[in-house]
Design a protein around this nucleic acid. Structure first.
Length: 414
RNA sequence: GUGGGCGUAGCUCAGCUCGGUUAGAGCGCCAGGUUGUGGCCCUGGAGGUCGGGGGUUCAAGUCCCCUCGCUCACCCCA
């Protein structure tokens, strides 16, 4: 074992996977840009207070934040998610609304790592601030949906719910507290602890023993006022119009405290229940105001890169591809010609690699083979003297030919 | 935070039950067979604090304790 390894929950993304990540983000950028969303980058670290709105009662804020005092005595934290930082940015920069942005990058939560969950985990994220038009909700969901389609995932399902206005949500929460307290004997021990902190989240319990109690619990829909009911109905009408299939899931509450009204989740079809959430999001209409900005509605979602790539693996789509080369240069005269030819061909737009360390021709040819390049360009002492190079097809068959150095790039580009 | 499984070569693993030559295999890597041509084949080579520490023993990769790490699940979440 080497002296240093990656810190728990952190890992190296090696070739060719790192390039797959890059293409994943690029695919999302394309889908987002096609819908008028601009790229945004916010700091990896914020004042810890920025994240308080995520939920004082949530595990994320309670015990999972990388939080510390910096050298200037400032209370800071690595972001555990994107939305709070985006709202802080909005409150600080006051951009023109609607502000439609997307982000990609790492987030940090101090949790015990397991499959599909790491302490440093990447997400892609999309947010709209400044409008509570229900068709914004529908558009946001549609962009996420189209991204999954773009990747080729067939088994993703959309769960959607509305938590109502804050006051309705609060009334629902009280009703749940009463109901679960009355039935506390039937609840699992874990759920009793959850009940004390946040009755809403008891609905999220996946423990089998809780299922009967949860089945009989009050339903949020009974608490909707006219406005929230109409808003939610319009969101669903928008999805219907787009032909996006969804399941209204009255128990879907999601884990972050700031959600109101529309909430949704993209569930993978192949992972087991505990980690099948590929992404999720919802409205957070009060969050910008809570961070000291103007009252501003907002909605967005985040998608876990790891989990979605696992889903891609399971469905056999969006594979990792090795680096593809056009040309591999073999030079047995010391390597100076390979240096010159490589740069010359690269300038002509070709992907070119070469061997180093003045190895034998056999060794260099093996390297050329392994590289997967379509052509080997070979220079020995004869070619060097004659001002030529040998062009040898490596994959498609055919004979090798001798080409004048001046014609090399043109010959390879055809 | 709780519980299970696992740490032996770059990778995948055997050896551990029942302690006993110099710790092995496949793949990969390097070189040669073929002194200017890859893939297939053959030969050779490099590469190991057996995760770390302590203990038992004449003797520990193997048994015991501790510890670190990885992994899977629970909780929670993306």
């Amino acid at each position: 074992m080497p002296q240093f390894q990656t810190s728990p929950g952190m890992r190296d993304i090696l070739p060719p996977d790192a390039d797959r990540w890059r293409r994943f983000v690029a695919a999302f950028a394309d889908v987002a840009a096609a819908a008028g969303y601009a790229a945004l980058a916010t700091p990896l670290m914020e004042d810890a207070g920025v994240f308080a709105g995520v939920g004082e009662a949530t595990d994320i804020v309670q015990k999972e934040m990388y939080r510390f005092t910096d050298n200037g005595g400032r209370d800071v934290a690595l972001r555990p998610e994107f939305t709070a930082g985006v709202c802080r940015s909005f409150a600080q920069q006051r951009p023109v609304t609607p502000w439609k942005v997307w982000l990609a990058g790492s987030n940090f939560r101090y949790e015990k790592p397991q499959r599909g969950r790491y302490r440093q985990f990447d997400q892609i994220d999309l947010e709209v601030l400044g409008s509570d038009d229900p068709f914004v909700d529908a558009e946001v969901v549609a962009v996420g949906w189209r991204f999954f389609q773009q990747l080729g995932l067939q088994q993703v399902t959309l769960l959607i719910n509305s938590l109502g206005e804050p006051a309705e949500r609060a009334a629902f929460n009280d009703a749940l507290r009463d109901y679960f307290t009355a039935n506390i004997d039937a609840l699992s021990e874990d759920s009793r602890a959850t009940l004390a902190r946040n009755p809403l989240r008891v609905l999220d319990s996946k423990r089998r023993e809780d299922a009967p109690v949860i089945a009989g619990a009050p339903t949020i829909a009974d608490f909707y006022g006219e406005e929230s009911a109409a808003h939610f109905a319009s969101v669903l009408a928008g999805l219907d119009r787009l032909g996006i299939p969804y399941t209204v899931s009255p128990r879907l509450v999601r884990g972050l405290d700031y959600y109101v009204r529309t909430t949704f989740e993209f569930a993978g079809g192949t992972l087991d229940s505990a980690q099948n959430a590929l992404g999720g999001g919802g409205r957070y209409d009060g969050l910008v105001e809570a961070l000291g900005g103007p009252a501003t509605p907002g909605i967005g979602f985040a998608i876990g890169v790891d989990r979605t790539l696992i889903a891609c693996d399971d469905e056999g789509v969006f594979p990792a591809d090795p680096l593809e080369l056009d040309v591999f240069v073999v030079d047995t005269t010391g390597g100076l010609e390979a240096l010159a030819i490589s740069e010359e061909l690269r300038a002509a737009g070709l992907r070119v690699d070469r061997a180093f360390d003045n190895r034998s021709m056999k060794s260099q040819m093996k390297a050329a083979d392994r590289s997967g390049a379509r052509f080997a360009v070979i220079v020995g002492s004869d070619e060097l003297a004659a001002g030529t190079a040998v062009v040898r097809p490596m994959r498609d068959g055919g004979d090798q030919s001798v080409v004048a150095r001046a014609d090399l790039a043109a010959a390879l580009q055809s």
